[in-house]
């Protein structure tokens, strides 16, 4: 076992999240009380190991590790757990830790199991660093962090829907009886949405500085999708703020928005154009179906429009 290898630490973190989720579920089902402190310990330990894993990968890539699918999903899971640990200090939501651990396991497994997701792009000949500028790196990291916040928002929304359904169908002895109230869940969802929108806005603001300078290298689908996700969440936030969208519909919308955001991840490459001598090795297999070098850039689209 290589303890300088990122994946070793990431697997260990996944194991701890799994223990937290399975152990917590079992104890809650047996009616032995909800082990919130124990769960916090396991989730915190898992988070520490995951941080260690991402640190080792960052040392390899000389950047925030966002260069392939595995890294990006791991970073989302990391951000999502970090957000949980922070918001836990602000407001306590019973069982949120359990579902945080559950989603962290799912995301971790989804990133670690498919071997094709984790191409070792930094080992390619001529590779120097992942991002051409620290601003792009900041943009990518903050954007992915906001996805982590939206993941937690999705968890809270799912809990809302379960509680709502249990109350509607008079299922009093279901697991929902341990959940927070629907009012608490909706209030928490509103705050998480605001935090996510703020981070995504900051990311887009930082990214737009780069795009303005170098728009010929900005892939159009990436731009459209990123701005699309931002607009989607902005609209959600505005409608919720104006109380035009609330309760079950709001929770459903938050879940759908997160699914769309995750699907859109395929188009959003974190690295743009890697800095390396040999450009032929820089393609990201994760975005292979939407290879940034194969899709039209803004400059290309403008030129095409002029010709016609």
């Amino acid at each position: 076992m290589d303890f300088t290898e990122a994946r070793t630490w990431l697997w260990a973190a996944t194991l701890l999240y799994a223990v937290a989720f399975l152990g917590g579920s079992l104890l809650a089902r047996r009616g032995a009380g909800y082990p919130s402190f124990l769960l916090l310990i396991f989730v915190s330990l898992g988070f520490f190991l995951q941080t260690r894993g991402l640190y080792f990968r960052g040392m390899d890539t000389h950047a925030c590790p966002l260069g392939n699918g595995m890294e990006r999903i791991q970073f989302i899971a990391w951000s999502f757990v970090l957000t949980y640990l922070i918001i836990r200090l602000v407001f306590k939501l019973q069982l949120l830790g359990l579902f945080t651990a559950g989603l962290a396991v799912l995301l971790s497994l989804a990133s670690l199991l498919p071997s094709g997701l984790d191409n070792h792009y930094w080992k390619a000949p001529g590779y120097e660093k992942l991002f051409a500028s620290p601003w792009i790196e900041l943009h990518a990291a903050v954007a992915i962090f906001s996805y982590g916040v939206f993941a937690l928002l999705a968890v809270v929304s799912a809990m809302y829907l379960v509680q709502h359904s249990a109350l509607r169908h008079r299922k009093v002895s279901s697991i929902a009886s341990f959940f927070p109230s629907i009012s608490q869940l909706e209030a928490a969802a509103g705050k998480l949405l605001l935090v996510g929108v703020v981070f995504l806005s900051v990311s887009i603001a930082v990214g737009s500085i780069h795009w303005a300078k170098d728009y010929e290298n900005v892939a159009l689908p990436k731009l459209v999708v990123t701005v699309g996700v931002w607009i989607l969440y902005m609209v959600l936030w505005s409608l919720h703020r104006m109380r035009r969208l609330y309760a079950k519909k709001f929770a459903r919308a938050c879940l759908v928005a997160f699914l769309l955001a995750m699907v859109s991840m395929g188009t959003v490459s974190g690295k743009g154009k890697p800095v390396q001598a040999n450009q032929a090795t820089g393609a990201d297999p994760v975005v292979g179906f939407l290879n940034t070098q194969a899709i039209p850039s803004l400059r290309g689209l403008i030129n095409k429009t002029r010709e016609t």
Binding site: Q163, A166, L167, V172, S181, S183, Q184
Partner: peptide, 12 residues
């Protein structure tokens, strides 16, 4: 008490 439990699940 059932009413209280339900109210708690709605309003906290």
């Amino acid at each position: 008490n059932v009413a209280v439990e339900l109210a708690t699940r709605i309003f906290g």
